[in-house]
Design a protein around this nucleic acid. Structure first.
Length: 231
DNA sequence: GCGACAG
DNA sequence: ATCTTGTCGC
């Protein structure tokens, strides 16, 4: 069973959530070389009424064959508020994470990493609980400035901080990338414990014939499937 | 005050 | 995210 650290509770007020985000963001470690993963994880959370269904899939890397997947169902604790997605989805994710036997070496999330107003999107946030490298894969931009890349596979452009004076040493917070010709781009950003170069490389190696990389794509597929089975 | 706003 | 079938375009 995969373990995780209970970094903080989820019974919080927005002001407390914001404070936690700033505190954890200051501890994010971008860069460093990680060993090529043998198992890559994918996470997605879907909803049905007041229930949140969390999914974790484990794929062999680089073959991308499905090894295992788990799911959980928890009561929704708060509404969706832009910038605070993690507080709504992490409880479901963590409950599914504990059921995983083949612990992933790196995990991809459906949402952003440091490409976030306070540098702590769900991918970065989750890393402090599972203590593993994470990557954020966004389907739309939440924060940052970027130029839409050409619609050719793997064409890409950097995502810069809206306020470049806020973090002058690292204004590039992610990469906009065309993952499939003639489709809208995906937004890759570091979650934690990984470099943007590595995050992009692993993302590209996880992309086959679809817009989303297999870990996230599979997780989403299963979340929809599981919802019907348990409804 | 106004507009933006992951999933 | 979710409500929802067929349909236009690559």
């Amino acid at each position: 069973m995969a373990e995780y650290k209970q970094v903080h509770s989820f019974d919080l007020q927005i002001s407390q959530m914001k404070k936690i985000q700033y505190e954890l963001a200051s501890k994010v470690e971008i860069g460093g070389k990680i060993r090529t993963p043998s198992i890559i994880g994918g996470v997605d959370v879907s909803f049905m009424g007041e229930k949140a269904v969390g999914i974790v899939v484990c794929l062999a890397f680089p073959s991308l064959e499905l090894i295992e997947y788990s799911y959980s169902s928890v009561e929704v604790s708060m509404p969706y508020i832009p910038g605070y997605l993690a507080f709504r989805e992490l409880p479901a994710f963590l409950k599914a994470w504990e059921k995983i036997k083949n612990v992933p070496d790196v995990v991809m999330f459906d949402g952003h990493g440091v490409a976030h107003p306070r540098r702590l999107g769900i991918a970065s946030h989750a890393s402090f609980f599972i203590e593993r490298p994470t990557i954020g894969i966004g389907k739309s931009l939440l924060y940052g400035i970027t130029v839409e890349p050409a619609k050719e596979k793997f064409s890409q452009n950097p995502i810069y901080d809206n306020v470049y004076t806020k973090h002058p040493n690292d204004s590039i917070i992610g990469m906009s990338m065309c993952s499939k010709e003639k489709t809208k781009p995906i937004y890759i950003s570091c979650g934690n414990l990984i470099s943007l170069e590595e995050a992009i490389k692993l993302s590209q190696m996880s992309i086959t014939k679809y817009r989303l990389p297999e870990p996230t794509r599979y997780a989403h597929l299963y979340s929809q499937k599981v919802k019907k089975e348990i409804s």
